[in-house]
Write a protein that binds this DNA or RNA. Structure first.
Ligand code: FES
Ligand code: FES
Lengths: 144, 144
DNA sequence: AACATAATATGATTTTTGTCATGTGTGTTG
DNA sequence: CAACACACATGACAAAAATCATATTATGTT
């Protein structure tokens, strides 16, 4: 709808980690991938990129896997999205003009602007754990 | 951002036609493409599909091209989008679950629902000419 | 008949998505 | 310690989809 598959997987995977990591346990990629119904190798690649960007963590070896350390458990949704989609994601025009702006607005800009701003603000305010906490436990759907 | 390039071109091209067709003049693909800064052949393909779906019209031969006949000048934006993206476009989940629904909502559903519904409603209500009329003349940007 | 233009088909290219093989570090076990 | 198994890291590769380009065909105009 709005995001690429990569971002969808990134968010679902991070949500899974946030939801299940009490302490500093690791989750191996196969566990994560089957929990969120995503292709394991592809998902692994995306998560590795998140590790490089210091959004989540990982350790190798037995008992290893991906995890979120307690101190950085408050991942801003916006940062996660930007990490995958690129820094100018929210500057894109609905109709594909070079840049979404007041100065050079496309005909749909005036209608779309409000929604874009509100979503951007929402994503900037909420952390993944906020989202998880505001969801009804045992009713959190991350699988197809 | 939300739409594919195909849809972006489709909307921009239709807007151009709506804006310039007073009467039943035809516009050849090169005119349209350079007016909206899009690859001509690719755009042509998209417009041909719109013709088959009776959203716009075209005639062959000299003085031919794409146009909008007066009676069907009120193209609903929603119909145009669906024509390119497919009928289930607005049923897609933000996080890529099989279906966006109240019954099986993803963790972001509650926040996104409102915006999706409002946009859907807007697109269903407005015609392309509505949008054009509500825009300031001589300040309608369809080019990069 | 000559010409201009859309329609159609086909192919090339790029991006996205997904898979595989191999390397590298880490912990376990004897 | 040394051998081994485990799981991420990395980069090459492949399949699919989206995007862009070309060539040929059909059709209407003059
Ligand atoms: S300029 Fe197109 S959405 Fe803002
Ligand atoms: S279920 Fe994900 S957006 Fe509605």
């Amino acid at each position: 709808m709005i995001f690429s598959k990569s971002t969808e997987y990134a968010i679902r995977a991070t949500m899974f980690l946030c939801l299940n990591s009490s302490g500093s346990e690791c989750f191996k990629i196969n566990t994560i991938a089957s929990a969120i119904d995503s292709p394991p190798f592809f998902t692994s690649k995306i998560l590795q990129s998140l590790v490089r960007q210091n959004i989540i963590s990982s350790t190798k070896g037995p008992k290893g896997g991906f995890y979120i350390d307690k101190k950085s458990k408050s991942i801003i949704l916006y940062d996660l999205i930007i990490a995958v989609e690129g820094p100018d994601f929210f500057d894109k025009c609905l109709l594909g003009l070079n840049k979404c702006s007041e100065k050079n607005p496309c005909p749909l800009h005036k209608y779309f602007k409000k929604h874009k701003e509100e979503l951007k603000l929402l994503f900037k305010k909420k952390t993944i754990s906020d989202i998880m906490n505001e969801s009804i436990k045992n009713e959190i759907h991350l699988r197809l």
